[in-house]
Amino acid sequence: MAYSEKLIDHYENPRNIGSLDKNAEDVGTGLVGAPACGDVMKLQIKVGPDGLIEDAKFKTFGCGSAIASSSLVTEWVKGKTIDEAETIKNTDIARHLALPPVKIHCSVLAEDAIKAAIADYRAKAQKEEPKEAAE
């Protein structure tokens, strides 16, 4: 399959591979996809006290497009607020990497991964609040 240079660059030099402590209160983790479908993405964000995403890490089981899509979004979310990060669309990812039509689902999965990570972070933050109020 003919892939764009940008995609190949992300595959060969993936940005931000790794894991953050999934139990930390300031870390949100999204795990999406399924092994049987051939792609699973784990995307994690770490949100600073100023509300900005200060770090993002990913691990992906999947084809080159899936790896590149997740690598790209870790770059994009850094420095954004979670509300801003939530607006990243799969079409932006697909366009940036020039994904072939059969690989569009990889960009959809990457968007889902961000949303899942943000949802996880928010759920943790909500649980935190009553505790803080009690103190």
Partner: peptide, 8 residues
């Protein structure tokens, strides 16, 4: 494998 969530 080092970047596979399943391996991890």
């Amino acid at each position: 494998r080092a970047m596979s969530p399943l391996w991890e």
